[in-house]
Amino acid sequence: MFVNHPPESLTLDLTRCCVPTQSNGSPIDTFYETIRHTLTLGQPDQLRDSPTLGRLLILGLVTGTEAYFRTTLFGLTSFCPLAKDSLADSEIAFGAIDFYGADQAALGLFERVSFAGKLGIKEMSKKIAGLTWVDRSSLGVAVSDFEKVCHMRHAAVHSQGVLNRGNARALGLGRSTGAMNVVVDMPHFHMAAKACTNLVREYNRSLYEHIVQRWIRERILVGRWSDDRKFFQPFIDLMRSQEDGLMRGTAYSVYRTLQSGILNRYASP
């Protein structure tokens, strides 16, 4: 007598589920596209009828945000000399060079890194970009809010929405509330999406300002477009949001606005 039905044979070939990656636009624009699509999947009545849907969509939001960090920080390693310097002694798996190729070997650095939380974001931002912040800054608050969403995602991924002690504490739940489940309605789904969007927007702006200032300070930019173009062009392509449309013109026209600041640096010791 058995307690349940037996398993059946299965030929599991998932290779057809794997298609070449298509990436258009900057990481922030790709993020916007992902979030937009994810949001349209969460209609109020569907969320109300299916707690599973809400949890899966939270996962989608966090994944989209993680992808932004991965792509942006990886992107930086391909042209920022300071990032390359700071990673010079970092170790990656041998197989990563083989799989990603020499040009994209830096992807191996991200293999065991999770951006679904404050820790990974802080660590890699400091390591690759030298970017740090205080908790009460706009970026710090945005990261903290995202961290809360990540705790919901953690419960969704690992325990069908049931919160563990760490998740519950992070979400501000008291000790004696007993077992709690994540159930996401439309308002909270939108709040989570807003938290993710706030983080990406604030981080993108902060990173841009930080790198520009760093390049000027460390004399990576010399004030001649012919020399600076190799850094600045891919940098603008990486950071600028075409969708937001706030920074218009070519990379050169943006560079011109910074030129006097760059040249002033050379005027000072």
Partner: peptide, 15 residues
């Protein structure tokens, strides 16, 4: 806009 609490468009997903 579906409700006061909506922060994104339910049709196109934009803020």
């Amino acid at each position: 806009r579906l409700s006061e609490e909506a922060q994104f468009c339910m049709k196109c997903g934009r803020p």
